[in-house]
């Protein structure tokens, strides 16, 4: 082959190589996106399950056994102080499939989930890190701001992280550009009645 022919062949190879790499990259990106959305569904399901578990419990440790009340008292007089929200000793066990049973087995009221963290696995899917915070909020909409004193409302913020390797998004400089954390966050407001 002469020089002209060699250049033509080289150009063709470059075009073909570019096409192959582009198709491959697009396919991998599509798969990654689908994988992430699937993990998002699982994470949302997991968060919903913990919210459901918590919402089935009592509002406060001090109201597990609810005395008859002649008048409506102030929340501060009958509920746990805001600074003391968290798990307490004793209580009943909580239901759940074996793979989701964790440290919440002794929880019996909603705010026991304050500071709750657990690593849990779903078979053939991934490991997830669960963390929750519970705090009092004002009863004034629409802000529902956090309250330093007991109120009739508690809010749970629950976050689920998956442990999937995020290095696929990493740039050459090691920058994940905010894509390094895959977290689902859900909130739930629970009222006393």
């Amino acid at each position: 082959m002469n020089t002209g022919q060699m250049m033509l062949v080289s150009g063709a190879m470059i075009l073909l190589g570019t096409t192959v790499f582009t198709v491959n990259r697009n396919s991998l990106q599509q798969g990654t996106v689908l994988r992430q959305t699937k993990l998002g569904i699982y994470a949302a399901s997991l968060a919903t399950s913990y919210i459901q578990k918590a919402s089935g419990m009592n509002y406060d440790e001090k109201t597990v056994v609810r005395p008859p009340l002649a008048t409506i008292p102030a929340p501060a007089t009958i509920f746990t102080a805001a600074a003391d929200l968290g798990p307490d000793i004793g209580g009943k066990n909580i239901y759940g499939p074996p793979e989701w049973v964790g440290k919440d087995t002794s929880f019996d009221d909603f705010d026991d989930y304050n500071g709750f963290t657990i690593d849990t696995s779903i078979t053939n899917v991934d490991r997830f890190h669960v963390s929750a915070q519970v705090y009092y909020i004002d009863t004034i909409p629409p802000a529902y701001s956090p309250s330093a004193v007991p109120t009739w409302l508690k809010r749970m913020d629950i976050a689920i992280n998956s442990s999937v390797d995020r290095k696929v998004f990493e740039t050459s400089a090691g920058d994940l550009s905010g894509k390094g954390v895959d977290t689902i966050k859900l909130s739930y407001i629970f009222s006393f009645y």
């Binding site: 798969g31 994988r35 699937k38 569904i41 699982y42 399901s45 919903t48 399950s49 459901q52 578990k53 919402s55 089935g56 759940g96 499939p97 779903i122 078979t123 053939n124 899917v125």
Partner: peptide, 14 residues
Amino acid sequence: TSNYVMLWRQIRSI
């Protein structure tokens, strides 16, 4: 199968 054709989910509702 988890990557292609199967999906599993559990909901608990009260």
